[in-house]
């Protein structure tokens, strides 16, 4: 067993540098690495490229990094619900690359799996296809998309062990497993950190080989964007 445990978020993010490419797991605010983001906010960073399905909201998640002007470029599939994002985008301070969600997921997966490029039907005939190679397979057109990798990937899991094995809960899994594999250094924060051997190997979603650092997270807010309830 290789012990991946670090003391806390501050230690985990200590060597993150300006102009780095970062990945963040999460869909909306569900399954985002809250502790790592908070720790990054306390560092003097700029020029970051952030790959994340969404860009948080004004006062939470990656939205806070935008407020501090740490981000040069966002690579995402959907970036609504964020006024500061909109302001920086329209003023030209922030660069944005919008990618179909399935293509984003697969580009990250490809990055972690050693597949430099792949063909997908998503975006054929749209501006997403501009400048990309098109090829016909069995009578249908597909476009070539390249892998995505990161200097650091930040993921959040429900449970993890000291060997870096991760188990996610509900739909908070989303982009986290692929990003764990696509980061040169992957930093996992978990709600419950247990000694190696305590998690059932049959239930591991992300094997520890992809995780370089793991720490016990704290004070999770787990904000809900659209609280929707039924009466009965």
């Amino acid at each position: 067993m290789i012990n991946k445990t670090v003391a806390n978020a501050e230690v985990a993010v200590a060597d993150v540098f300006s102009n780095a490419v970062l990945m963040f797991g999460g869909f909306g605010l569900s399954g985002i690495p809250e502790n790592s983001i908070k720790a990054l906010l306390n560092k003097e960073l700029h020029g970051l490229t952030c790959i994340s399905n969404n860009a948080g909201v004004d006062d939470f998640g990656i939205g806070l990094m935008l407020q501090k002007r740490m981000v040069k470029k966002m690579i995402s599939s959907y970036v609504g619900e964020n006024a500061e994002f909109e302001r920086q985008l329209l003023s030209g301070e922030l660069e944005v690359e919008l990618i179909p969600q399935g293509t984003l997921a697969e580009r990250v997966r490809a990055g972690g799996a050693g597949i430099p490029a792949f063909f997908t039907p998503a975006g054929v005939g749209t501006e997403v296809a501009d400048g990309k190679e098109l090829r016909e397979f069995d009578g249908k057109l597909y476009l070539l998309e390249r892998w995505l990798k990161a200097d650091f990937a930040f993921v959040k899991a429900w449970k993890g062990d000291t060997a870096g094995n991760l188990i996610f809960k509900g739909t908070a899994r989303n982009f986290n497993p692929m990003m764990a594999a696509a980061g040169k250094i992957t930093i996992a924060e978990v709600e419950e950190l247990v000694p190696a051997g305590e998690l059932n190997p049959n239930e591991i979603h992300t094997p520890g080989i992809y995780v370089q650092r793991i720490f016990q997270g704290k004070d999770y807010e787990k904000r809900i964007e659209q609280r929707t309830v039924s009466r009965k």
Partner: peptide
């Protein structure tokens, strides 16, 4: 207008 992104729509309609 502010572009929010395509989310999963392009993957869904392509498939």
């Amino acid at each position: 207008k502010m572009v929010k992104g395509m989310g999963g729509a392009m993957d869904l309609v392509a498939s």
